[in-house]
Design a protein around this nucleic acid. Structure first.
Lengths: 334, 334
DNA sequence: TTGAAAGCGCTACCAT
DNA sequence: ATGGTAGCGCTTTCAA
């Protein structure tokens, strides 16, 4: 098969210990021997077998990443962040997609553990008892990432969803909107939806002319927004702006409206939450809350690596700043 | 550290060989002993160390995937296909992103090789001599995937780009468009751009009223389309439809036009190439050529696994069917 | 059917 | 500064 350390040692006329020392720079080796060994390595095209290395050092330089679906651009962004900073520390990413299948999560946790990953990052919408049991048993560094649910029990990286929703609603109000509808979908317990809703509600309360108006979509995707927009379209007298708990919903709402000749933002303003990639390409460019997905991934793996290096680690729950992205889908009322 | 096969053997009062036999079902083991061992494995929560296994069996069940950037939804789609069928055969994905840095490709090839991956799939825009040298030296199964360039030297999975462009142009003509502009960007040698251009050109030739009209964009992204659309906007008298060599270009063109009150498709029809995710959410919904990105990834890894299993492998260049996605961005001329 | 032992490619310890 | 060797956790002969 491939060239091994033995081959190099024999060819260079030294012991494998010496070869090991030069490739790892772990102990002093006389310059001439070093040169010789390096030359042989080059000639033979020797590449250390990382698997053998891992077996003895217990370091695989592998981080497991379990996601629901890379097809969601925000997840792809998180994974980019994870991978790019992982690489800075020589870590590689072992990727597993569950497509929402909860049993798959358990399966991949096991698999990754057997493959000796040094830590796991799980990106999913929500947790259930089965997977929590697995996570509980898992001994190595772990971070949970979710755009939709908040889990106190595990290390996480999020933004302040409440504050973001509050500020967005206030912004809409500052544009002169009293009648701001809120569109979301129930995501079960521990859902950040609750925080977002509360942020919206509290902002509404501060405006005496305003009233809460909530639309409950079937889900959180573009199609769900498109569906619920049928209801919104009927209430346009009482609604001048629509704040959606995800960009996807907002895009769907916007599409239904413009497909039915209701002008956005001229007749209704629409705001989203998340700032997924498409939102700035979409017309009208979507006003939304920018969640730093890439950074969330980056910080998550950074935390794992810190824990691995036994550096002082950050607190369990890291909160990153968000931004209100003011674009074209929200209009100032005159 | 973790529980090893030794621990299980000792606890069960058998040899490690026996334990190995039961976990691998490799040789007959008496039912009672088997039961006992299984029970102990369960009690101790033993999980075989795949790294140790790999060292002896030479099978890592790992496929390396080198991509430019997961942020491109079509790449994410390919990776989804790769991962999902990989998993069907117990293969895991080791992911590396280069962000277009060519040296990174070489680096990751080495890295993946050291990590003992059993094959590599490279997804990039184009190849250069350095990386070709590396690929040439690489002994294990390899597939090259590119939306933009065609390489005869390596196994690939593509669609018939020429035919797709030809059919799209013919379709546009069937809608009554004589003046079809073509927008693309030079992607260097081996570029599929040439095939697409030729398909367009040959279709144009078949219509005696038609003339070629080519716009050369700076690149192939949305912004590049937006830029080049400034030129197109000036020539609107002579252009009734625009065929872009990528969806991204088409989206950019469409955005510039609608930002400048030129109605798509009422005043100009626009067609893309690729059918990236966003194209059907975008308004007007983009008429385009659907490239089966997921399937391309799926077929690529399937080929690698076949080669690994020494099954009869497909030919070097696999061509998958495409579809003309007729949507709203192209209008029939009355 | 079972166990002992060699060995996968490497690191790390102990000698020298 | 260098070499010998044990051992990482496992599979796989070979014997019994």
């Amino acid at each position: 098969m491939g060239v091994t350390i033995k081959d190099v040692a024999k060819e260079a006329g030294v012991s494998i210990s010496t070869v090991s020392r030069v490739i790892n720079n772990s102990k002093p080796v006389s310059p001439e021997i070093k040169r010789k060994v390096l030359q042989i390595i080059d000639e033979l095209g020797y590449r250390p077998n990382e698997v053998a290395r891992t077996l003895v050092t217990k370091k695989s330089y592998l981080i497991g990443v379990v996601v629901t679906d890379l097809g969601n651009s925000y997840i792809a962004d998180m994974v980019r962040g994870i991978e790019e900073v992982g690489k800075m520390y020589n870590y590689d990413i072992l990727l597993c997609s569950t497509y929402g299948e909860k049993e798959a999560e358990a399966k991949y946790f096991n698999l990754l553990d057997r493959k000796q990953v040094e830590g796991i990052i799980l990106i999913s919408n929500s947790l259930n008892d089965d997977i929590e049991e697995i996570i509980g048993r898992y001994k190595k560094p772990f971070v949970y990432l979710s755009r939709y649910s908040f889990e106190k029990k595990y290390p996480t990286v999020t933004i302040n969803n409440y504050q973001a929703a509050y500020e967005m609603t206030r912004y809409l109000q500052s544009l002169g909107h009293d009648n701001i509808a809120y569109v979301s979908s129930d995501m079960g317990p521990n859902s950040v939806e609750g925080c977002i809703h509360k942020g919206y509600k509290n902002a509404i309360k501060e405006n005496e002319n305003a009233e809460e108006k909530v639309y409950d979509a079937k889900g959180i995707d573009v199609e769900d927004g498109y569906e619920i927009a049928k209801d919104i379209a009927k209430d346009l007298e009482e609604v001048s702006a629509v704040f959606c708990s995800t960009d996807e919903l907002a895009l769907g709402v916007s599409n239904y409206l413009s497909d039915n000749n209701i002008k956005v933002p001229d007749e209704v303003s629409i705001a989203g939450f998340g700032d997924i990639n498409f939102s700035s390409v979409f017309r009208p460019r979507l006003t939304t809350i920018k969640e730093p997905y890439y950074d969330i991934g980056a910080v998550a793996i950074r935390r794992i690596i810190k824990e691995l290096k036994e550096e002082e680690i950050d607190k369990e729950h890291i909160t990153l700043p968000f931004q209100i992205q003011k674009r074209d889908s929200c209009l100032k009322l005159i």
